[in-house]
Computed example of a mutant assay.
Amino acid sequence: MTSTSAPPPRVRAALFDMDGLLIDSEDIYTIVTNTILERYGKPKLPWSIKAQLQGRPGPQAGEIFHNYAQLPISHEQFLTEQKELQTKLFPGTKALPGVMDLLAGLKERGVHMALATSSHEGNFKLKASHLGDMFQYFAPEHQVLGDDPRIPKGRGKPAPDIYLLALSTLNKTLEAQGQPPIQPEECLVFEDSVPGVESGRRAGMQAVWCPHPELLVEFKGREPEVLAGLTGAHKDDEEEQLQKTEVEVSQGKRRVGMPGEIDDGWAKLLKSLVDFPYEAFGIMEKRA
């Protein structure tokens, strides 16, 4: 597990998930899935299954879904029907409450920002192209998508790779500007999904979990496990690959690839991003 001998340092960077965190696309995913399930006489998708799909790359989520749904159509046919509905509905995505104020507030406070979404490029464009006011806060080189070739196959969330890659894009920019690099523990990951929180914690970063109300119900009583990244969403082989990798920081060593500990203070649950508590993360006051 991650060493917690010291409190988390001041946040210098914010790394954001997108679906269900910045925009309301998770509700659209639910509408699309339930529409197809209804066509074939299947019940609506329960949150016990949806919770496993959230935050994961498409292929992994698809495998979980099809093992549950047992639809009487081929996987290819499902993808065709799904794409048709998504193409129709995704251009209507909207910012979730508090998001625009939060992004503006972080920029005013000098916090560096990057995007780390499991969405592939095609769907990303459908969901985001009409939301220029939001995505102006993320320079193109600081937008990491789920089909980014720099992410090894099978290493999507809950593996830490996507958040470590997002951080590396910020540090590349800082290096070019002659500024000191940001360490993983100086990053605050914003997530709505359980695998996403685990991804951030396994990257050695701080985290904010802002879940859908129904997801919070699903994990009632297990919130500390989620915040520590201890719900077991990772694969055993991932831990074997990553448990030897360490990152040196001023407070000691924090192990990349390993989760946190219960109540270690490195992650917080927020039911909304409205009126974000900057001071709780050591984020400086607005610049003059």
Rank of each mutant, 00 (worst) to 15 (best):
S5P: 09
D133A: 12
V256N: 09
L126Q: 07
E81M: 08
V247N: 05
I162C: 13
R201D: 09
E238V: 01
D148I: 11
K127E: 04
L85F: 03
E121C: 10
F65D: 03
S250N: 13
T2G: 06
P160V: 01
M100Q: 15
P195S: 04
D237T: 07
K127R: 07
V256D: 04
S3F: 09
Q52R: 10
F65R: 00
T80Q: 15
F281H: 10
K271A: 09
L15D: 03
F78Q: 11
N67R: 13
D24W: 14
K268D: 03
P7F: 13
K157N: 08
I262V: 15
I262Y: 05
S118C: 07
L115Y: 11
I151T: 03
G55Y: 06
A159E: 01
P158G: 01
Q143C: 11
V217P: 08
G229K: 02
L89T: 03
W47A: 05
S3A: 12
A228Q: 08
F78P: 07
I36D: 02
I283N: 03
G282N: 10
I49L: 07
E26R: 02
S118I: 03
L79Y: 14
R109M: 03
L103W: 10
T87C: 13
Y29G: 03
L15R: 00
E26P: 05
L188N: 06
L45R: 08
D237I: 06
Q251W: 09
Q179P: 08
A159C: 09
G55M: 01
C210N: 05
D264V: 04
A61H: 00
I28Y: 09
G200D: 08
Q241L: 13
K172Q: 10
I64D: 02
